[in-house]
Structures are given as structure tokens and as C-alpha cells.
């Protein structure tokens, strides 16, 4: 009996695409969201004048930045279980994106903070404001403005890099593409759609960045 080969995409495939899209969004929101929180802490530590804060932060950033995302994923998903720590697929994906993005974002946070001039510190300290008060009310709001363009660029890159999580069989967009091409051999259509869906995720971000940048420029 000849094996039946599906030669066009059907409604079930469409649903699978949407599931993949949803899972990619979930993965990125969790992974990059947590990454941003960690990046704020590490970025502040990196920009700190205290060596005890800045060196560990720098080490963390360098190790993560200078090793491949795929290796980080393998270490978390395949190596941790060997040490007795079983990591579920989704958690491994989120953890990998979190760790990876936190290092890159921390550098952007650091650069943003250091772009705020010493005159601002003088003014704030001259008014009796402490370190955290100055950070919160004076430095971070200004640093934020500087951080938006590179930050969004990074975010877009990371969303696309999340396709790597497909190798541990998490059913996100890219994995869906692989499953459907294996089933239909319609690689052109399937990966075309996958690429288009990534585009739909990322393009609004670029637009949002431009908009925010313009809005924040008032008073700049």
C-alpha cells in the first residue's frame, strides 16, 4: 500500500501554526521578561563603583555572551539532569532565554546608566538624594531613553533566536515548521509561513520602539 502523503496544508496545520506562535510568544515573554529583571540587577551591579559588585557581574556577562546559545540550552537541558536536576522542556527553554538575554541586556543597562552624566549625580547628591533615590528618579529614567533602540534590537534578535529551543522538541514556531515539512514536504510554503509569523511578532516591536523613542524625546 503506497504511503499517503499530504500535499497541501489543512485547517489542522493552521491550528498547529497558531499553537506554535502562541508557544513562541509564551516562551519569549517568560524568558525575556525574567531576563530583563535579572539584567536590571546585573547591569546596576556592573555599573557600580564597588569592585565586589562589578567584577562578578562582568564575569557573568562575559561567560554568557561569549558562549553559544545552543550550548547553554544543552547544558541546562542535558547536563543538569546528569547532576540530578531534571528540567522540564518548557522550563529549560525559558531558563536558557532568561540567562542568555540577561547578559546582553545587562550590558545595555550598564551603557545606559553610564551615559547619564556626572553632572546629574552632582545635582541629585547636592539635593541630599541617596544612591537608590538618584538611580530611580534621575538616572534610570534617562538611561531608559538611551536603552530603547539597542534594547529593542536585542529583543527582536532574541525572539528569532528562540527558534533554537526547537531542538529540545518544544513545540514552538520553528518546531511546528519542522513537523509540518516532515509531514507534507512543502518546505517552501511551511517555512515561508513560519518566517512570516516571526515577522509579525517582531515588526510591531520595531514600530513601538520608534514611537516610544519619539514620545520620550520631549524634554530631551
Amino acid at each position: 500500500m503506497p504511503q499517503y502523503v499530504q500535499d497541501r496544508l489543512n485547517i489542522y496545520d493552521a491550528i498547529l501554526f497558531l499553537q506554535g506562535l502562541g508557544n513562541t510568544v509564551l516562551l519569549c515573554v517568560c524568558g525575556l521578561g525574567l531576563g530583563l529583571v535579572i539584567a536590571l540587577v546585573i547591569g546596576l551591579a556592573r555599573a557600580s563603583r564597588s569592585r565586589w559588585l562589578s567584577w562578578p557581574a562582568a564575569t557573568y556577562i562575559e561567560i554568557i555572551r561569549d558562549s553559544p546559545l545552543l550550548m547553554q540550552l544543552y547544558l541546562i537541558f542535558f547536563a543538569l539532569p546528569l547532576m540530578g536536576l531534571q528540567v522540564p522542556i518548557f522550563a529549560a527553554g525559558v531558563a536558557t532565554l532568561m540567562v542568555n538575554s540577561s547578559a546582553f541586556m545587562a550590558e545595555i543597562v550598564r551603557a545606559g546608566i553610564q551615559a547619564v552624566g556626572k553632572d546629574q549625580w552632582d545635582a541629585a547628591r547636592g539635593l541630599g538624594m541617596g544612591y537608590l533615590q538618584t538611580m530611580r528618579h534621575v538616572v534610570v529614567p534617562q538611561a531608559f531613553r538611551v536603552m530603547i533602540p539597542p534594547g529593542v534590537g536585542l529583543l527582536i534578535g532574541l525572539i528569532k533566536d528562540s527558534s533554537i529551543i526547537s531542538v529540545i522538541s518544544y513545540i514552538e514556531l520553528t518546531r511546528v515548521g519542522q513537523i509540518l515539512t516532515e509531514k507534507t514536504f512543502l518546505s517552501f510554503q511551511v517555512f515561508g509561513i513560519v518566517a512570516a509569523l516571526y515577522f509579525i511578532l517582531c515588526y510591531p516591536l520595531s514600530k513601538l520602539a520608534l514611537y516610544t523613542e519619539r514620545r520620550l524625546k520631549v524634554g530631551g
Binding site: D119, Q120, D122, A123, A124, R125, G126, L127, G128, G130, V138, P141, Q142, R145, L216, G219, G220
Partner: peptide, 22 residues
């Protein structure tokens, strides 16, 4: 230091205003 700074106002040559605030 903080207590003293709160009691001592300083004005700088380059104004040093906070540009993101009115």
C-alpha cells in the same frame, strides 16, 4: 553627609537640571 546636603543648596555653572522632568 545626607543631612548636611539637604540643608545646603548648590547651584552649578552648567545648571545640571534633570532633562527628563519639567
Amino acid at each position: 553627609i545626607r543631612a548636611v546636603r539637604a540643608e545646603v543648596g548648590i547651584v552649578f555653572q552648567a545648571f545640571n537640571l534633570f532633562p527628563h522632568l519639567t
